[in-house]
Design a protein around this nucleic acid. Sequence first.
RNA 1: GCCGAGAUGGCGAAAUUGGUAGACGCGCGAGACUCAAAAUCUCGUUUCCUUCGGGAAGUGUGGGUUCGAUUCCCACUCUCGGCACCA
Length: 1199
Amino acid sequence: MAYSHQLIEKKWQKFWEENRIFSVKNASTSSSNKKTFYALDMFPFPSGAGLHVGHPEGYTATDIICRKKRMEGYEVLHPMGWDAFGLPAENFAIKTGQHPEISTNANIENFTKQIKSLGFSYDWERELSTTDPDYYKWTQDLFLKFYEKGMLYEDEKLLNWCNSCKVVCANEEVEQGLHERCGNAVTKKSLKQWMFKITDYAERLLQDLEKPNVILLHGWEGTGKSNWFPEITDYLKKNGIDVYHPDFPNTNHPKYAEWKEFFQKEIQPKLQPNSIVVGHSLGCGFLQKYLSEENIKIGEIVFVAPTVGDCGVDEIKDFFTEEFNYEKIKNSADNIFIIAGGKDKYITSDEFKFLAKKLNAHFNFYENLGHFLENTSIEILEFFKKTVQSVLDWPEKIKAMQRNWIGKSEGLLFSSPLIFEYTKKRGTKSSCEGAHSGKINLSGSSRSSQIFSIVLNNIKEVKKKNMRTHISKIQKTFLINNQKIVFDGFALWEHWKRKNNYEKKYRKEFAATVIKSLSSLYYESEFIGYFSSKNSIYRIVFEYIEKDVKRIKTYYRVTDLSSLYQKNKNNLKIQTYSTHFEAFKADTFFVIAPDHPLLPKLIADVDNKNAIEKKCENILEKRAQLGFEEEKESDGIFTGRYIQDPVGNGKLPLWVASFALADYGTGIVKCSCHDERDFAFAKKYNIPLKAVLFPEDKEEAKKVKNLEYCYSDMKNGVLTEPSKFSGKKSGELREEIMQYVEKNNLAERQTNFRLRDWIFTRQRYWGEPIPLVFDENGKCYPLDSSELPLLLPKTDNYLPSSSGESPLAKITDWVQVKGYITKDETVKIITNSHQVPKGVEIQNFTRETSVMPNWAGSSWYYLRYMDSKNSNEAFSKEAENKWGPVDLYVGGAEHAVLHLLYARFWHKMLYDMGIVSTKEPFKKLVNQGLILSYAYQRKSGGLVPTDEIEEKDGKFFEISSKEPVEKITAKMSKSLKNVVNPDEIVEAFGADTLRMYEMFMGPFEQNKAWDTSAVEGMYKFLSRIHRYFTEKEISKTCPSPELIKLTHRTVKKVSKDIDEFKFNTAISQMMVWMNAFQKLDTVPQIAGGKFVRLLAPFAPHLAEELWQKFSPEDETISFKSWPTYDESLLVENNVKYAVQVNGKLRGDFEISKNATKEECIAKAKTIEKVMNNISMLGGEEKVRKEIFVPGKIVGFVVK
RNA sequence: GCCGAGAUGGCGAAAUUGGUAGACGCGCGAGACUCAAAAUCUCGUUUCCUUCGGGAAGUGUGGGUUCGAUUCCCACUCUCGGCACCA
């Protein structure tokens, strides 16, 4: 019977689909403790080109794992969907005039057909598309949750702008400074964008790439082995997590001071930024007090049955103070959990609730549980299961790329006084005078009037209930690190009072609003508030600052504005950031970025101001145009200003330099000759240099004549400058110098990240509309959740507009809406007046017209799959608990940074809100290699299309010129005519062949070239299997013990290889099995049955077909148990020894596995060849050593 | 420049507590079946030397440790991927 793959595959695909074989339910079944497994493929963008042979590679791998897991009894979630928003669909629409929705749906249909033809065991009932309103409703819903949390702000951003196409283009669309579509130069254009504060999570996104450790702190009369501690310790250790469970001293009569000393000595050094510290009972009390005293940063705190406040027990009184600094405790961890019971004998439920509220903790309360004194605790074990699932099992490569992208660096922040003689400008009032005339003054800022009006705008709204500040719009524009703001609160109050009807009761709100406005404006800057007298406003404002405004680093209470202003002016500090401060003694100049916000102010009074401005423009223009591959020569100009070096190098000049970046560090760099870039710059402009590091070799150092040698040797250099550090290696100095400068107030430690906030808006059509509206004053409101989904309006005009605005902006009747503000500060849109509840004010609103980037939909789709039909929420907690996190995530490495980072970011925000239960979304990540194709390359380097090549004697020639060409591997491309269409392969050889071949090509994670003749080889293998199983009768017994052993060996090897993603060797083992068995006249029942089940994950259609022969009563092989093997059968009775003389193979022999060393050596000596070799080397008496490796080697060392 | 991965026959590749290098497949060669071809099956296939017994070399290059190294250590070359004026 011939192997008719087409019939077999169609038949089984139909069967699987009609019987919904691979659908899984969310509700727990009767066997509720069934293990679950969630395997996910990166969902594809359904492009018009259809499926590529690269797609099925990853899909096959997950399918093999899933099918095996099902046979092992797991409940398997294996979904598929479409990432269908995005530029390509829109560009296709622009080109063809066809609406993106139409082309997208057609592409999805085509992709579905193609993917289904490959026989993957997807649960198609959970299929989703990011473009489906039922899906993006929840994308918008999550967006609003993040907006509520304050994770979004609006900012002006410089974007790539193509003047010829009048369109904003993504970085990916810009090549060498030119727009890839039209070839014209790309410039920068400033546009307002919504920004996601991913930088708030930079540290955690970095830390959670590493394994956390866990510290367990016991309570009164407990030990590190009390209660459930051993159970949890074992569980965590088994999962590779380090656990410390110390015994506090004097546990029966605990003293806080003793415990503190112990903790500092034993535990403190083990704390990492992602440590999880767990306390039980008094262990929590200790931790509360300790954390409110010390500055510590850890990952999570878990309080189990914590003591709260003063327990009223005298013995442990010193563990409590009147009230802890809960703010400080809260800030020392990313998340705090409280696990407590309602039947606790020592602490009341109200006390737990009090603590949870104070610490803003996640509160896991169990009504029927007590003080957690038992030996086991399901609740705590459950908690740590989630911890274990949050430990990433990812390729080092991807983790490294993420670390790189986040780009953390630790260094020192130097504050240097600017030498800056203040000169009064002609004709203008001094700032002090201005203050008294009722205006806000911001020292040196030309934009004070703008800020003033914005603050006033906010204050106007104090009257309204539920006041919401709308300051984010201008936040970053005025964020100047080095600037101190002088703000006259009293003057503002007077001003406001005049303009509005004064009412005493608004005072508090007024104060709050002012401070809130300014604090978000001057986020992380130094803030100086000034109030003319100690009146009540003064008091209220500063109370407010002290309590609620954390972001302001420092503030001063000053009552005399003019003296403050003068002091501030003369002490303007320039801050510089350095990670290579070992050579700070060599610093001889400063550089500032040409686009630094402080620069205009610095050069305002300088003579050659115009020349400097021109130079800056020049540099910035060049920077915008240059692709990064081009040579970058540094360029700059002297600013005319000097800075007093805080670490004793005197008065140093400040230069504008092209290599300084405004948005890294502080935008101002302190430079020395020991940095290659600084060195080149100084040489170019003849800035004096001073070398302080020399090679360690003193003799060499003496020979050094020029500075070039010095800077190149900085890494191993020794500081020679006569100071307390001289004579030490720079590497060893880092910590010492850090401590020295900190102690002497010369600098402070600072961490910097390369990661920038995420621009979350696109001025495009084909994306999720953003559910925000603006009122007539430009204040932003979120839409009410009842307004979701906010549908993407239908239009034929989806071309980007010339203003850089979204195409949606042109749909006026969609953009301009009427609505009212709800109690929750959200906006409800009304289409007719009947809908309007009584007592609300109808206002005009304008919609946000940008759409989300296509990373939005892909940042959470894995969660929707868990509960894709849910119409009440994005996904239910139960579903997330059952399936999350994704156990296995497979896809290309091209998403190593953006998609995976964004998804992790969203997941972490959801975790903090208590919406998901794990810190990380994807437990194990595997990247498939690229599938390449052969291509032919001329000697000159040009590539020749495949159909213009002929082969002669294994060599390749170009037909037209007869020139020899070289066969290489390259990406598949239409122009090279080497694209392989999976449909054709399925048609000719079948899905099983395609699956098997792609798995057999080579290691899964490696790139590999497509070879169609090898595909035929795989087809032959499957045909051989088919022939063997269909043409030969089943026999009850297996004729040879060797073959039984082979079968068991094959089961073991294939099982292990699948788990390790070594599909190629699993298949080769099946080939070995087949080669041996096909020589038989029959199919031994047990061995054959095992083999077919091993084959099932790889070639499911064929396996189903063959299984019918073994077990005709079974409907499907999909849930038959995975074959087992008997380890004892794998041990051979006889083993083969290799015999070596001086490490070279000279023969072998077979002997019983129980043979002793002596027996083996004696046997080895009977081999003629061995003895010949020994006598050639001098005979048996020269044998110095006999080597015996049991089961493997007998060796003789002859000398 | 920085970070990461890798280099083994004509080709894809296998081989881990250091122990017989090249499993399995492709390709190629020989043979069987056939009038013939295809398909199928059998045998061979790292290179060089050979008196046909066998011998020598061999896992990017050069060193080292070891009785023994694809595997461990040091230095280097090349290839691929990512980042890049990041102080």
